[in-house]
Design a protein around this nucleic acid. Structure first.
Length: 560
RNA sequence: UGGUGGAUGGUGUAAUGGUAACACAGAAGAUUUUGGUUCUUUUAUUCAGGGUUCGAGUCCUUGUCCGCCAACCA
């Protein structure tokens, strides 16, 4: 980051979390210490919404001289897996963040069990033998209070015994739960004697078969924060009602007082952002996997060609607040273009070829043209691009009956072939069906790029590829996965709105230097967009993903 | 409608009782060997009513609309 950029961030107004932290530092809370945590459940891949949370959690900690723990919230063995753990760690690091400690809620199962016993001893928890249906019906509704369970007033000794036997596996799954004894008439439904432990004879990815009882989120999260002495536990808005219980547990257990703060999660236009829905897209084959380049997952964006810098910039620009939001996906695209424009290597690739024969250029001659790798980077250097009598240009760069401001090729019109010569179109050759199959052009001999003494000024510059040297490549062009802007308020199932044309695969013709591309190389196909080598590519078959197209003001004009 | 959180241009975010601003998107123009980039210019905003105040997006009040909460999910 440059000094100027650093200064401008410092001058930026604080978001409400930063204001709270600065106030806490000012008043000496926790001796000014700041420790946050990022707490993913390992039951899916991270997405751009998690990136917002990661940037917030790691970002504020970094800003105020603190740190962040990575803590896997693995209290439900049924849905969780180590595959997810690995992908999550990889994604966080790829985004550019490093945690202080790698922890697991399951590391605290012994502590949590002891906390439960403490609660029982304090007369604040009891073993309930009601079925889940009974528990639900006794819970009441938002407008009516609940009813006490018949098991609510068991003695401490009986509860202790029963809970231990639950732990020992003496009772079948679902037959008993441990409930906090709070208030069945509480206006906050969460506080109506919440279940804090349940029986699950499931294999846990870390504790194996040691446990057959597992704590619920509400009995694990706050205590885990407390054990780690997290100062600011940042989560999303839907956890607001849980804060009462978070505080209740910490209060009754008399443990370190971590505090929960909530911000609004990210929503993106034309995108779904729930792990459940993303998993469904994967499982039902609407995409090829969690890292399909159309997915809003970190791994999908990475494969698509997004950079960590651009995602961080995006998260910075969208801000942090407490109101629901729906961010225009064009802001994400703006951020990636902004970064890629600075770093991408320029290369010429024709996506929809039209052959041009330069009739006054000698046959069997290949002339090398020097072309800049990146006009934004003075040290980017040059490369050689072969030029010959036959080249491909983009079919859309020629028009038989051009409109007034068409600066490209038409019979009688001149254009520059980028980094090469100015050519004039003399004739368009058609087949029997009147399709244009070839252009006959002549080049202006003294117009070569760099040594142009022709004095001719042309309005248009086209990218091109020499036919004999052209390298065929597969190009995957992506469109938005969904057809509607706001999936949350769209009618019907979200899958009804899948865009059937979200992937278009074509063959393009590339200048030879594209052979050297690696998965990490960011490339701009001149005048077309930003692309990167796909992980499916082999040395025999080059495959490129379109990260994002270039801003296309002509397309807009022509489309009118 | 029980609780709870929220409402500022098309979309986000700021303004912390004192000129409603910044970015994206949109529009117009200049530059350009990428119709890209860059640079100008520009359209458009405080949910509604009442109140406090010299002064209200901000405080009070009434209402409207939106989100979330009745999983042995997180």
């Amino acid at each position: 980051m440059s000094e100027i950029a650093k200064e401008s961030t410092e001058e930026k107004s604080l978001n409400f979390i930063e204001q709270i932290i600065e106030e806490d530092i000012r008043t000496g809370k926790h001796e000014g210490r700041v420790l946050t945590r990022f707490p993913p459940e390992p039951n899916g891949y991270l997405h751009i919404g998690h990136a917002k949370s990661i940037c917030l959690n790691f970002g504020v900690a970094q800003k105020y001289g603190g740190g962040t723990n990575l803590r896997f919230d693995d209290t439900n063995p049924v849905t969780e897996d180590t595959e997810y753990v690995e992908s999550i760690k990889n994604d966080v690091q790829w985004l550019g963040f490093q945690w202080v400690n790698e922890f697991y809620a399951s590391d605290y199962f012994d502590n949590l069990y002891a906390f439960a016993i403490d609660l029982i001893k304090k007369g604040l928890a009891y073993v309930d033998e009601s079925t889940s249906e009974q528990i639900a019906s006794l819970k009441g509704t938002p407008t009516e209070p609940g009813t006490n369970s018949p098991y609510r007033d068991r003695g401490v000794e009986e509860n202790l015994d029963l809970f231990e036997r639950m732990k020992n596996g003496e009772f079948p799954e679902g037959s008993r739960t441990l409930r906090a004894k709070i208030d069945m008439a509480a206006p906050n439904m969460i506080m109506r004697d919440p279940i804090i432990y349940r029986i699950k004879f499931a294999h846990h990815h870390r504790t194996d078969d040691k446990w057959c009882i597992y704590p619920m989120y509400d009995f694990a999260h706050g205590q885990s924060d407390s054990i780690e002495q997290i100062t600011h536990s940042i989560c999303t808005l839907e956890f607001i009602p849980h804060r009462d219980l978070y505080d209740w547990c910490i209060d009754k257990l008399e443990i370190f007082p971590s505090k929960q703060y909530e911000f609004a999660r990210l929503n993106l236009t034309y995108t779904v952002m729930s792990k459940r829905k993303l998993l469904q897209l994967v499982n039902e084959g609407h995409v090829t996997g969690w890292d399909d380049p159309r997915m809003p997952t970190i791994s999908g964006l990475r494969r698509r060609g997004y950079t960590p810098e651009s995602i961080r910039e995006f998260c910075d620009r969208i801000g942090i607040a407490r109101r629901d939001n729906l961010i225009d996906v064009s802001l994400l695209e703006f951020c990636v273009r902004e970064h890629l424009n600075k770093i991408a290597q320029r290369r010429m690739v024709v996506l929809d070829p039209l052959k041009v024969v330069i009739t006054n250029f000698p046959e069997d001659t290949v002339e090398l043209c020097l072309s800049e790798n990146n006009p934004e980077d003075p040290n980017g250097g040059m490369r050689e691009v072969p030029f010959s009598r036959e080249v491909y240009i983009e079919r859309e760069d020629f028009m038989e009956n051009p409109p007034k401001k068409f600066f490209r090729l038409a019979v009688g019109q001149m254009v520059r072939l980028k980094s090469a010569y100015i050519i004039r179109c003399d004739e368009a050759i058609k087949d029997e069906a009147e399709n244009i199959i070839e252009l006959r052009c002549s080049y202006i001999e003294n117009s070569k790029s760099g040594n142009d003494t022709s004095g001719i000024n042309v309005k248009g510059t086209l990218h091109w590829v020499s036919v004999s040297e052209a390298l065929p490549i597969e190009i995957r062009q992506y469109d938005r996965l969904f057809k509607v802007e706001d999936l949350a308020s769209a009618e019907g199932d979200f899958k009804d709105h899948i865009n059937p044309n979200s992937l278009e695969v074509i063959t393009g013709y590339a200048e030879p230097s594209l052979k050297e591309a690696t998965v990490d190389t960011k490339i701009q196909f001149v005048r077309k967009g930003y692309f990167c080598l796909d992980t499916d590519a082999t040395s025999d078959k080059l495959i490129f993903n379109r990260t994002v197209g270039l801003k296309d003001t002509w397309g807009k004009v022509a489309g009118k």
